[in-house]
Amino acid sequence: VTEGGARRDRELDPSTTKRAPGPREDRTEVLEAGATQGVLWIGAYLLAVIAPLAIAVLIATPPGRGFWTEFSAGLGFAGLSMLMLQFVITSRFRRVAAPFGIDIVLQFHRQISFVAAALLLAHVLILFITRPETIQLLNVFEAPWRARFAVLSMIALVVLLVASVWRKEIHFRYEPWRLTHAALAVLVLAFGLAHVIGVGHYLELAWKQGLWILFTAAAVAALVYIRIIKPISLLHESYEVEAVREERGKAWTVRLRPVGHTGFRFTPGQFGWLTLIHSPFSIREHPFSFTSSAEDHDGVEVTIKELGDFTSTVGRVPPGQRAYLDGPHGVFTPDRHEAPGYVFVAGGIGITPIMSILRTLADRGDERPLQLIYSVSSLDEMTFREEIETLGTRLNLDLVVVPRKPPDDWTGPSGYVDKALLDRVLPEDRDRRFFFICGPQPLMESAESSLLDLGIPLGHTVMERFNLV
């Protein structure tokens, strides 16, 4: 498996880890390879958390200080290691993301941060409870620097967590939030390191201090890579906006053409991080699915829905505008999930990756049976409506449009995509097909559990979600 060889490393997806009666006999191996990769990465994560703790505690050990103090120190070390690993997790290394999907990796980043924060909180509380005299260290005016650093680190961590968990509620815009998030993360880590070295119990020896400084530097280097080095390397491979066209449902398709290079190949359903800078059209590194055919090698298209934020200005982006595209990313692609047929469930603008899949399959002359269940607010708002109807003549496609507000003479299904609707419209060979679901969170959750209830194997369902903060 080669890095970036997304077209070839289809054996890496754990969403297919369940043994399924697939069409190909090599599927068992494929599934097990995916599961093994996933388990290996989880093991590596645990090891990376525990190893620094083990080195601090087990080698050249200072005299013990009683169970609770030692336990508290252990939790502190583990919490700090986890915070360092947070930098690595979000570095979008394709090899790490491949078995899980980058969305799950980012969700993991979010969830595991609560565990790290809980460990660090426990670290402090255990000390306060078992050695009440340590509470005095909270008095930052008189406390020694090692304690001040601890307080500063914890404050930065709390602010970081609050700003991330309630970003929308406190109306913190995404762009400044991202900058703040990175800056606070570096502060939490730097103050944490200063605290650990200041306390010095386990890090009295110079080489142990050096090791922790090295760990911290590696974490920050990961951040520097993704925020500075990667963007600079993208500068050499820029794109320009070739055309912008309006789509149904307040969406705009932006066609990008590589400038002075050949661009990259992607598999249908993948996405890239788009940056459109200068002028008021400031989009910095937002994930967008490619909507064009993967067989179209002259350029790449993304379709962006106006959502009232930075996306509202997309329609006014002029041709010739410089753009940067980091990709391809993602495992939401039938090229990784070989099956005798597919069912796509799209909700609203969630049609974008599926549109790329349909266009690509049409260009490839694919004859497998396909079904598209497309939930839209109304037929007027149905993005790509005309083209999807045309694609029906080039593909073996069964189109099921589900408008929430159907016209008066509508005879097809309407309302929400629920279990009853799916049971009614899904094809006979449903248990052999693979399902790709993309749309708003409620639709994805409802579709996923409905399919499971209808006896579709879990490994046959593929989803990616981006609603992170």
């Binding site: 645990l46 169970f67 565990v115």
Partner: peptide, 30 residues
């Protein structure tokens, strides 16, 4: 489902770390 599986992994990692930290502390405290 993938999401729930991921949450289980997160909980598992948290418990494993607690266990390791407690064992180290026991070892140290002796």
């Amino acid at each position: 489902m993938r999401y729930r599986r991921m949450v289980r992994v997160v909980v598992g990692i948290g418990l494993a770390i607690l266990l390791v930290a407690a064992s180290f502390a026991l070892l140290e405290a002796r």
